[in-house]
Structures are given as structure tokens and as C-alpha cells.
């Protein structure tokens, strides 16, 4: 059993780790742009804001499985193949990026307007406000957002497993569904539950610990 489950756990962790990293890399700047280009914000660009919003909404309205299939060519281009753990990271990252953008947007929007106003009154530049004010004031909330992203990606990665992504989802389907080995399925599900619970716990604890508000 261990021999069966352990490699799958590692695959899942591998997929989730890298797709989290890449989706943050893509989604975080998007989230910042969404906030600062908004009307009345520090870098008002109404047109850009509209375009970004439309793209993000469009991407988010795709069911994940379909998006994955649509992105097979991109995986092929970047990784050289369309199945396997590595190849799955591409659609996972892109699927999660708009989600990350929205999560970051809502975290950054929680930052007190008065604090931004004060920074402007002190002659802060836009990049200074982003790094020294928005980011640090929103950090506890950003950590919760990242936690949420990781948990979502665990779910997505399980779905990706069904179309050749590997990992715990793949294991559960292959053994549980096709071979009627219910025990393997149950163990897979339990491991996923433990993963999700521990990540949520770590995220909550960390966010609470660094929050000075």
C-alpha cells in the first residue's frame, strides 16, 4: 500500500508546489494591476482595468477540465508532452492564475484607504506604495489567499489526474474506480483530506501570528 500511495503523494506535492508557485507568479501581478488601475486608485487606467477584468472573468468561467484540454498544445510547447505530472503543471498554473488574481485583489482591497492616502501625502511613488504599504499591510490576508490557492490546486490536481496527470487523484481513480480496490481509494482520499487540513491549519496559524492588527 505504502509503495503505491507514497509516489502518488510526492507527485501531488510536486504538482501543487510548482503550480502554486507559477500561478502566484502570474496571478499576483495581475491582482496588483487590478487594484491599482481601478478608478480612484493610485495608477488609474480604466481601459486596462476593464481588459484585465474581462480576461480574468473569461478564464474563470471555463470548467477546469476543458481548460486543461485546451491548454494541451501549450504544455506540448513548454514541456514537450501533454501527459504526466510535469506537463500538468502548465494548465494547473494557468487555470489557477485568474483565481489568484481575484484572491489577491480582494486582499489588497482590504488595505485601509487612509493608509494609502497618507503614503501619497508623504510623496511615496507607486512602486513604493505597492511594496511597502499594500503588500505589507495585506500580508496576513495574502497568506490566507495563498492557502486557499494551494487547497484549490490540490483539488484541481486530483481532477488533472483523471486525464493523465498522475498524483493522488489519478491513484484513486485508477484503483478505486477501475479496479474496485476501494481501500486504495479510501487511503488516497484520507491523504488528500489530511493534506488540505494541515495546509489550512498552517495558513491560518501563520496569518494569525503575523497579523498585528
Amino acid at each position: 500500500m505504502i509503495d503505491l500511495v507514497l509516489p502518488s503523494v510526492l507527485e501531488t506535492l510536486y504538482m501543487v508546489f510548482f503550480s502554486t508557485a507559477f500561478s502566484l507568479l502570474l496571478g499576483f501581478p495581475l491582482g496588483i494591476l487590478l487594484v491599482i488601475t481601478e478608478k480612484g486608485s493610485i495608477w488609474e487606467k480604466p481601459m486596462l482595468n476593464k481588459v484585465l477584468n474581462t480576461i480574468i472573468n473569461l478564464l474563470r468561467s471555463f470548467p477546469f477540465i476543458i481548460l486543461m484540454i485546451l491548454l494541451f498544445p501549450l504544455s506540448k510547447l513548454l514541456i514537450g508532452k501533454t501527459i504526466g505530472t510535469k506537463a500538468t503543471i502548465v494548465p494547473l498554473s494557468i487555470a489557477a492564475a485568474p483565481f489568484v488574481a481575484r484572491v489577491m485583489e480582494s486582499s489588497l482591497k482590504e488595505v485601509d484607504k487612509g493608509v494609502i492616502e497618507f503614503s501619497l501625502s508623504m510623496g511615496a511613488t507607486v512602486p513604493q506604495i505597492i511594496t511597502k504599504v499594500l503588500f505589507s499591510e495585506a500580508l496576513p490576508s495574502i497568506i490566507l489567499g495563498v492557502t486557499l490557492t494551494i487547497i484549490n490546486l490540490i483539488g484541481y490536481s486530483a481532477m488533472a489526474g483523471s486525464i493523465g496527470g498522475g498524483g493522488l487523484g489519478d491513484l484513486a481513480i485508477r484503483y478505486g474506480l477501475y479496479r474496485y480496490q476501494t481501500d486504495v481509494m479510501i487511503v488516497s482520499v484520507i491523504v488528500i483530506i489530511i493534506l488540505v487540513q494541515s495546509i489550512q491549519f498552517i495558513g491560518n496559524t501563520l496569518a494569525a501570528k503575523i497579523n498585528k492588527k
Binding site: G114, V115, F118, L120, S121, G123, K212
Partner: peptide, 16 residues
Amino acid sequence: RKEIGMIFQHFNLLSQ
């Protein structure tokens, strides 16, 4: 603006 300080009713301190 660096030559003009400002204070506010609700202080607007950086909470973190």
C-alpha cells in the same frame, strides 16, 4: 509633498 506633512482623524498608521 515631502515638505507638507499631514495628520488625519483616524491616524492612518501602518497597522503591520
